[in-house]
Design a protein around this nucleic acid. Structure first.
Lengths: 182, 182
DNA sequence: CCGACTGTAGACCGATCGGTTTCCTGTTCG
DNA sequence: CGAACAGGAAACCGATCGGTCTACAGTCGG
């Protein structure tokens, strides 16, 4: 039995990603099968719900992108970009949810923006840990560069409305080679 | 004497970038000093105005990013990333207008998305021309990779709400080095 | 002075916005 | 059984949405 809270977070995660944070509270509650009354008892405002739904969605997002245990640091890093490539093949792909939400909100102080910043940093931390394990000279810089490639690739897929077709993997590979992470 | 059309396009370009395409037609017309009647005589719909304002804004955007005549291909390419770095230092920076609009609209068939695609391709074409002039083996791939870095860097500045501090330039430099564009 | 034209001001339309409130049904627990 | 409580349905609030339309002021060429 799912709780109203779970249904709200799930519906919000999907609707806000698919149609943007401009989706109305009425439509959202209808999709979740929850009354507005309950929604406003569970969340202080729509803005808090946006932030909470992004926070909820992020672990699933990580699970899709991050590699299972094992493999070389290089393979583990490239797994992220291969997984992203797969995501961009879906017709429902609308870019990285974290970046998309931050972009739409236009407000660095919005609670959802802190969520996006935190989870994006987690990806960078993963890259940095792999780079460090591989003995790269400047793991933090490489990690930041890989994150840039990740977000740039997702932006490209959105603007061109087509899959990446290996461009993200190729660009990440070039950076790994340049940093000596073989 | 500016025409109502010019005032509308200017106000739309600024407001839609600063606050998002959710800005209402009333607020927009008030900011432009144009009546709604005139707006709807000049444009078929708000969507058309979004597309037209993006198209209008793009040449100015190019002028800020692209280098003046002269210089080596490497310097000319890096000029773009240095200019971007400067843009991210402005507190009003909200990411690349083309990517931000495409991300907000969530609709690949929206007229503004075609505008974004076309102008983003123009930047890639610039990169490709420089790469070709430098005799790079695969200029189109390098150009696509540089565009990825450009858009990823702008996304980073938005999510982190801080300037790039050289990360875009450094990442582009690594790719230029890897491609042998010295 | 006259009509034609341009453009602003703003009322108006039905729909929807975020948010609050009332009402009522179902369940649970003492 | 009955009081407490959770939660859905929906009315309601003032404001705003995209879009249309009327009314009127200003500026033309004749």
């Amino acid at each position: 039995m799912t709780t109203p809270r779970d249904r709200l977070l799930d519906a919000a995660g999907e609707l806000f990603y698919r149609e943007g944070v401009g989706v109305g509270v009425d439509a959202l509650c209808k999709a979740a099968g929850v009354s507005k009354r309950s929604m406003y008892l569970l969340f202080d405002s729509k803005d808090e719900l946006i932030a909470a739904s992004l926070d909820r969605r992020a672990p699933d997002y990580d699970a899709v992108l991050l590699p299972p245990d094992g493999g070389t640091p290089r393979e583990r890093v490239l797994h992220v970009f291969r997984a992203q490539d797969d995501l961009t093949r879906r017709p429902t792909y609308r870019g990285c949810p974290l970046v998309a939400t931050a972009t739409e909100l236009k407000d660095a102080t919005h609670p959802a923006n802190a969520v996006a910043r935190r989870h994006k940093q987690a990806l960078t931390d993963f890259f940095a840990a792999e780079a460090r394990a591989a003995g790269v000279a400047d793991p933090d810089t490489l990690a930041a560069q890989l994150t840039v490639v990740f977000d740039g690739a997702s932006a490209r897929a959105v603007v061109r409305a087509e899959p990446l077709s290996g461009l993200g993997v190729a660009t990440a590979t070039a950076l790994l080679d340049a940093a000596g992470l073989t």
